[in-house]
Amino acid sequence: MNFKAIIAVAGVALLSACTNADRFSDGSGAGAGAGAGAAGDPTSPAYFQQTIGDRVFFEVDQSTLTEAAQQTLNAQAGWLADNGEFSALIEGHADERGTREYNIALSASRANAVSDYLISRGVASNRLSTVPFGKERPVAVCSSESCYNQNRRAVTVVQAGGGAGF
């Protein structure tokens, strides 16, 4: 996996209809999938994020993929097969109900579970990389399960370039 191959695409995607957009876009490598094209364009990262679904969710202290998660990832794998010019950075995240180091490890395990699954569905491993964020980058900031279950997630951030294709 080569992190240097991930090239941030200039330009901000139009995410107006998205209720689940990441609220962060700092220089840490995390961020909403940015890319050219509106959500109506099925080859756009915006379409991937909103229509395909860019994230899967996990049970408390688990990194196994639920059935719903596997369905989302099947669609992600299909999109990546159709759009070979994109690579994907998979961000693992945890809710705030854990210690810092453990959550880094747990979120690494979650991101890896997604990566492994996508590879099993035919995505070339050299198009995928992972980064664990632990509990450092929640999308929902309340301190209750309604937020925690949004934060226990792995987000597939597709970006143009880098991948070798199928």
Partner: peptide, 27 residues
């Protein structure tokens, strides 16, 4: 070169350190 490393701590004599490395989802 390719794995996540974190949670470091020095040995008391400062000559080595211990840390966690996460690779393939295992830490």
């Amino acid at each position: 070169s390719d794995a996540v490393t974190f949670s470091p701590r020095y040995a008391p004599d400062g000559r080595s350190l211990i840390y966690s490395q996460s690779q393939g989802g295992n830490t």
